[in-house]
Design a protein around this nucleic acid. Structure first.
Lengths: 171, 171
DNA sequence: TTTGGCATGTAATCCGTTACATGATTAG
DNA sequence: CTAATCATGTAACGGATTACATGCCAAA
């Protein structure tokens, strides 16, 4: 693929757990080529120049080596939870809005997952990697469902906290 | 607190969704002091020198401003899911081990969450921020339960994928 | 004709970790 | 005595985003 294609393909297939920017991709392609892990194929002549790359045999085995290494855990870092943690009852209204927005986003995501899932099962029914694609997708679904449940639970808590605050103020 | 204390306090209280390194903390303290948002207090005389900082009024209002800004979503990035996505049936055994390890880790985490929760409810029963602390904790619990469920589900899938692979090999 | 998508690439900058340097105090 | 913990800080490095520069082609 070309750098441009890689960006688009990544966004639609693994976008819910990985992302890359051009500032990463293009320099990486140069490095990979110097290492002999990918090779440049003559791109299309019409229109804007297009650099299409394909993996080499050495690249394939380097990929296999990398795949065999146990994945390192990604350190979690949530600005959302940090701000919630530092909030108190006087911030309950604001926090409620954030949680409501998160709830909407995750609900939307869930329906997108469902569509991707349906598409995959219809169009890639016999692809040997299908179970693995579905598993990563399922991870996203489990995660989103958990977030949705947490949002509903937390909205109740925040409503209580907000009410308490009002009572204390008016007394 | 001192830089050293901040690191330790963060690790035990918000460690499951935030982390900082000394390389961040100490320079940050200098910057915050130059901005007049924190002030250095004379630390303890005995033992190693100790720089204790406290927030100023300007710092408090700057914090309030920051807290009022909507949290920006953290881009997800999971090496684990990326490797799983790029796997096929020949990698099923390896993937199974990773999932089993994840299952063990998240199960362990769940029991830690329970302990933290019990501790908080016992010792901070009347703290006005308690509902917010419990909410962030609950986020971790929901998330971990979802991961545990996903692991069990995925282990079944991987067992099937591995079996298929064996059958195809032996035919 | 002008907007939007195709397409490649670089530079500045930010954010963050790791490793290093240094040294005092305390518990075993 | 010696290992661990307390304690502060810097430097090197890596990884990633953002903004910028450039320009073609197709469609409205």
């Amino acid at each position: 693929m070309s750098g441009y294609d890689i960006k688009k393909e990544a966004a639609t297939s693994i976008g819910y757990f990985w992302s890359e920017s051009y500032g990463q991709i293009y320099p990486a392609l140069s490095v990979l080529q110097s290492a002999g892990w990918i090779r440049r194929r003559p791109g299309r002549q019409k229109g804007r120049e297009r650099q299409v790359y394909e993996i080499t045999d050495q690249g394939r085995s380097a990929l296999d080596v990398w795949l065999a290494e146990p994945p390192r855990p990604t350190p979690v870092r949530s600005e959302f939870l940090l701000k919630l943690f530092l909030s108190d009852a006087t911030d309950a209204v604001r926090a409620t809005q954030w949680v409501e927005q998160l709830l909407a986003e995750e609900t939307e995501r869930l329906s997108q997952f469902r569509m991707i899932r349906d598409g995959l099962m219809a169009e890639q029914r016999d692809h040997p990697s299908l179970p693995f694609w579905l598993s990563t997708l399922s991870f996203g679904e489990h995660r989103s469902r958990a977030v949705v449940r947490w949002c509903r639970e937390t909205l109740k808590v925040l409503r209580k906290a907000g009410t308490k605050q009002k009572k204390e103020k008016s007394q």
